[in-house]
């Protein structure tokens, strides 16, 4: 993560050097978008980013993150950044008229870049991008399902089948600057039914039985890339609007999310 701050107590000369560096950095992140109508924000930014930016850019506070991530649209087959737009709800938080957007998008990104720029590693599950854990489970009924996995490891590969109740995907933070890996975790729910020994001799309706549910870690493994097949209908538990039906492909996304926050905003995620 890269952060840019200018402290008020800093010496003038250092401040000038820093300001110059920041200006250069903001130039790199500058996006030129001609947007006249609110409805064109997404398209305008996409077009602009496709032409200029090597990264994915989201503008806003961290509180928008969920909305941004879950509102993803299909990634393009090309290598162009396809994930970039200001959520429409933004207009409520920051009342931007179309005219201000036209001027404001450029200015805002440029100026915000001088405040704080974060590069976040993200991962892809089918056509959606995630910054946090992606939890996958069964659509309606509780219980276990058979998950068939085909996994590419850092060095090696694995095909596995496992009983699963919940599948969690998250990124492994690496201290070294290595390629990011996904952590695949499968948990399975086990149900135990026990009858109180003192009542074992009684008729069934007089007995007291205790049903306990517990989750067992079925598998966890760092992977480079993977796919999952299940005959059951699966949903994304953490973000239900994301489609995870059919064969599920997951891998770290090759690009980082360049996240530009406004003035020293507290992290509220």
């Amino acid at each position: 993560m890269n952060s840019f701050f200018i402290q008020p107590t800093i010496a003038d000369k250092t401040r000038d050097i820093l300001a110059d560096q920041l200006r250069q950095a903001s130039q790199k992140t500058r996006v030129e978008a001609e947007v006249w109508h609110t409805a064109d924000i997404r398209q305008g930014l996409q077009t602009a980013l496709a032409q200029t930016s090597p990264t994915i850019v989201a503008v806003g506070s961290r509180t928008w993150f969920d909305r941004i991530i879950t509102a993803t649209h299909s990634l393009k087959a090309s290598d162009l950044p396809a994930f970039a737009f200001i959520p429409f709800d933004t207009t409520r938080l920051h009342p931007l008229s179309p005219f201000i957007i036209r001027r404001g998008v450029n200015a805002a990104i440029g100026s915000l870049a001088a405040r704080k720029v974060s590069h976040l590693t993200i991962f892809q599950v089918n056509n959606s991008l995630f910054t946090e854990t992606c939890s996958i489970g069964q659509a309606e009924s509780r219980g276990t399902f058979l998950a068939k996995l085909s996994l590419l490891l850092n060095n090696g590969n694995l095909t596995a089948s496992s009983q699963a109740s919940r599948i969690d995907l998250s990124l492994i933070e690496s201290i070294q600057d290595e390629a990011p890996l996904l952590r695949l975790g499968i948990r399975s729910e086990l149900i135990n039914q026990s009858v109180s020994p003192s009542k074992a001799g009684l008729l069934p309706d007089k007995r007291t039985s205790l049903k306990t549910h517990r989750f067992e870690d079925a598998l966890h493994i760092p992977i480079e890339k993977g796919s999952l097949i299940s005959t059951e209908k699966l949903i994304c538990l953490s973000h239900p609007e994301v489609d995870v039906s059919g064969t599920l492909n997951f891998q770290p996304y090759p690009k980082k999310l360049k996240f530009i926050t406004s003035k020293n905003q507290p992290i509220r995620y």
């Binding site: 090696g156 089948s161 496992s162 067992e216």
Partner: peptide, 8 residues
């Protein structure tokens, strides 16, 4: 609960 084959 896991049946697998491959290399690590």
């Amino acid at each position: 609960l896991v049946t697998s084959q491959g290399s690590f």
